[in-house]
């Protein structure tokens, strides 16, 4: 009596399972749980399939208009379920693993972006391109990034420029090891002064910074008021070569996210460091 029903169910599951192997191609309703994923998906031409993003997803402009499902660390499961996605894209760099597992246990397909470092970005893009059926665009993007990487790759100069990248001026927080910014500074043949700290975004000692005397200071200008907020800090750093020689620069937020804007960020930073590409 129950047999036909069970059989039907098994068949149904079977047929449902087939398209999942070709992953996102069939996905018409995608939710992105990280700002860099949102940017990547838009640049792959999948913008109109995105039905939900996080509150941090502010680029490109269209992303701002998408429904929000919460932050990167605390997205709302309910908001996600309400949007009825057929795929949720998560990142190992910012989202909680448990949340991804929870989504899968509720029968929602997930796609995981794994790139954390600059060198892993082209591979991540190609894989995503395959999975989302946007292989050609992904290939173009990946090649653009690879071209930028080889164009800017420099043999280490005799004396490396010593650069300090400020993520937040008050209290002082720097871009340390394992960040995209650290990777880019290394690529450009510069030394990241904060590269030997123990964490990615260390709260940095001002007196140590005075001692380390960086040649160049770059301040991430990601929010209104940063420049004003930095004034007090720069006044205290007035004996540092970077400040004395007017080598303090502000840069946009392109280098905070591993994605399609990364090449532009590399070019901007390279220009500030005074190198010709």
């Amino acid at each position: 009596m129950h047999k036909p029903a069970t059989l039907f169910l098994i068949l149904l599951l079977f047929f449902c399972a087939i398209p999942s192997s070709s992953y996102g191609e069939a996905s018409r309703r995608i939710i992105s749980l990280a700002p860099n994923i949102t940017e990547i998906l838009f640049s792959l031409g999948l913008g109109d399939r995105i039905i939900g993003v996080t509150t941090f997803c502010d680029y490109p402009e269209e992303a701002r208009k998408k429904p929000k499902v919460g932050g990167m660390w605390n997205p709302s499961l309910e908001a996600i379920l309400n949007l009825k996605p057929d795929l949720v894209a998560v990142s190992t760099n910012g989202n909680h693993k448990e949340f991804e597992e929870r989504l899968r246990s509720m029968g929602i397909k997930t796609y995981i972006f794994t790139a954390r470092r600059l060198s892993e970005l082209p591979r991540d893009l190609r894989e995503a391109g395959q999975a989302f059926g946007a292989g050609q665009r992904a290939e173009v993007l990946a090649q653009e990034i690879e071209a930028t990487l080889s164009r800017f790759k420099k043999p280490a100069p005799l004396r490396k420029k010593r650069v300090f990248f400020i993520v937040w001026p008050d209290p002082l927080v720097a871009a340390g090891p394992g960040t995209l910014i650290d990777d880019v500074l290394n690529l450009l043949g510069a030394e990241n002064v904060a590269g030997k700290a123990r964490v990615s975004y260390p709260k940095y000692s001002i007196e140590e910074l005075l001692r380390q005397a960086p040649d160049i200071i770059v301040i991430g200008d990601m929010r209104e008021g940063i420049q004003k907020m930095s004034e007090g800090l720069l006044k205290r750093l007035k004996s540092v070569p970077a400040v004395k020689n007017n080598k303090v620069f502000y840069i946009g937020d392109d280098l905070y996210r591993l994605g399609p804007r990364t090449p532009k960020g590399i070019e901007d930073l390279s220009r500030l460091l005074g190198d010709k590409p």
Partner: peptide
């Protein structure tokens, strides 16, 4: 609030002497 200023607010609330002048 999704503001980056939060980082500062949190550090400040947990006690921060690093910017003392």
């Amino acid at each position: 609030s999704a503001d980056e200023g939060l980082r500062r607010a949190i550090l400040w609330i947990f006690g921060d002497l690093s910017m003392s002048d």
